[in-house]
């Protein structure tokens, strides 16, 4: 079922160095509900490289202001920096702090007492199977471990919206499966949680999302791109019976939708 609007991107436009990057991007994210189950939202924002996905993340997270338009949360409340978590592409961490300390500082920065932050860090280290890496520095972690720490750091103080920039890039199949599982787990920690996955990995995004937004530019009749990306398509995967299922990738409907999206993707 679809409930209240949790956040809205309204007519967001932005130019960069005179070039139109985003052009009136608009979409809403609704609360998805399932009887007897805590169900967070997972949205996939798909788009080819260089289309403005990262730019859109920065605007949603209130790191940059759009030239026009707005991003609002529940009941139209404006979003302030720090309210939206972002797992950036290269998983930045504080290089001078250990893994445990990286988590603790995220808690303290959000007003938790030292003891509370330590408790929360310990819980997350166990949850993310990083218990034996607590005393490691970021330079000692593998790419996958670094990604898990970066995600854990963002949920030390839970945020309603967590955006992940290309979380599936460069992962081997087993690591990819692990991250997909982790994304679902984090989203389902709270009914009002929303994870936004910004990616060009169509298949992985389809497998975990309940809604897909396709960001891309329009073309002229003779095939030339027009400046400024907007939401070209919205796919409600719940409606299509392609969400919340472990075996979703084995369904014929999944394959045919993947084909359809790939075709569309090529034109963006």
């Amino acid at each position: 079922m679809t409930g209240e609007v949790l956040f809205s991107v309204r007519e967001v436009s932005q130019k960069l160095g005179g070039a139109q990057i985003l052009d009136r991007v608009s979409f809403d994210v609704h609360d998805r509900t399932r009887a007897g189950q805590t169900t967070g939202q997972i949205i996939g924002i798909l788009g080819p490289s260089g289309v403005g996905k990262t730019r859109l993340i920065r605007i949603i997270a209130a790191l940059d202001a759009p030239d026009s338009g707005s991003v609002v949360g529940i009941q139209g409340a404006p979003i302030e920096p720090g309210q939206v978590g972002v797992v950036f592409q290269d998983y930045p961490l504080l290089r001078h702090r250990t893994v445990r300390s990286n988590l603790e500082v995220a808690g303290i920065a959000n007003g938790l007492s030292r003891a509370a932050a330590q408790g929360r860090a310990k819980k997350l280290l166990d949850l993310f199977r990083l218990g034996d890496r607590g005393s490691y520095y970021p330079a000692q972690l593998s790419g996958g471990q670094r990604q898990r720490v970066a995600i854990a750091q963002q949920i030390v103080c839970p945020k309603r919206l967590l955006l992940m920039d290309e979380p599936f890039s460069g992962l081997d199949p087993s690591a990819l499966e692990e991250v997909m599982h982790l994304v679902v787990e984090v989203a389902n920690m709270d009914e009002l949680n929303t994870i936004g996955i910004v990616t060009h990995d169509i298949r992985a995004a389809m497998a975990v999302s309940d809604t897909l937004f396709m960001l891309g530019r329009d073309r002229t009749p003779d095939g030339k791109w027009l400046p400024g990306a907007r939401i070209q398509e919205t796919y409600d995967l719940v409606e299509r019976g392609l969400a919340w299922r472990d075996d979703v990738m084995e369904l014929p409907a999944f394959s045919s939708l993947e084909k359809e999206i790939r075709q569309k993707f090529k034109q963006l």
């Binding site: 790191l63 309210q83 978590g85 950036f88 001078h96 500082v105 920065a109 103080c157």
Partner: peptide
Amino acid sequence: VAFDHMRVLGASERRIFWEVVVRGTLD
């Protein structure tokens, strides 16, 4: 991104300065 990372964590600009600029460049 080092500054933005701390901003999305909800850190104040003073803490960002301490963590990223002072402690982050100590070596």
